[in-house]
Simulated assay, not measured.
Amino acid sequence: MIPLKFDKNKKEKKRINFKVIATGIVAITLIGIVGISIGRFSGTNPIGPGVVLDGITTIESGFNKGFTFLQANIKELINYKKNANEVSKLDKEKEDLKQQVIDLNEKLDEVESLENLKKSLNFIDEKYKENRISASVVAKNDGNWYDSFTIGAGSDDGVKKESIVVNGNGLVGIVYEVSKDYSKAISLLDTKSSVSFKLMKDSKFKGVITQNTNLENKENYKNKGYLQGYMFETSYDVLPGDVIITSGLGLYPEGIPIGEVDKVIDDKNKSMKFVVIKPYVNFKNIDDVTIIEPRNIG
Rank of each mutant, 00 (worst) to 15 (best):
G170T: 00
Y230Q: 08
P279M: 07
V178A: 12
G241M: 08
F232L: 13
V281Q: 02
T210Y: 12
V195T: 03
Y230R: 10
I277N: 08
Y221H: 13
D267P: 09
I291C: 08
N169T: 04
E216P: 08
K201I: 13
V166L: 09
S193I: 00
T246R: 03
G207V: 00
I265G: 04
E219C: 02
K201H: 04
P253C: 07
K198A: 05
S235M: 10
L188E: 01
N269T: 15
S271Y: 15
S187V: 00
K206W: 02
P240R: 04
E260I: 12
K270G: 08
S179L: 09
V165F: 01
S271W: 14
G225P: 03
T191I: 11
V238L: 10
Y236N: 12
K180F: 10
K198D: 03
D237N: 15
T234V: 15
I277M: 08
L249K: 11
S183H: 07
P240M: 07
I245H: 05
V165A: 02
G229D: 04
E233S: 14
Q211G: 11
M272T: 13
E260L: 11
V178S: 10
F197C: 04
S194I: 00
E233A: 09
N220Y: 12
D202V: 08
K278V: 08
K218A: 12
G229L: 05
K192M: 08
S235H: 08
D190V: 02
K184I: 04
Y236M: 14
P279R: 07
I277D: 03
I209K: 05
G241W: 05
I174E: 00
V281C: 05
G225K: 07
Y226K: 06
V275H: 01
D181E: 14
M231T: 02
V178G: 11
P257V: 04
V238G: 03
K278T: 11
D181M: 09
T191G: 10
K201L: 05
V175D: 06
E260N: 11
S203I: 12
N282M: 05
T290P: 00
S235N: 14
T234M: 13
D267Q: 10
K198R: 11
D190E: 13
K278Q: 06
K192A: 10
V195H: 01
L215R: 06
S183A: 15
L239E: 10
Y226D: 02
V276E: 01
L227W: 03
E177H: 13
K278H: 06
V238P: 05
T213R: 11
S271I: 15
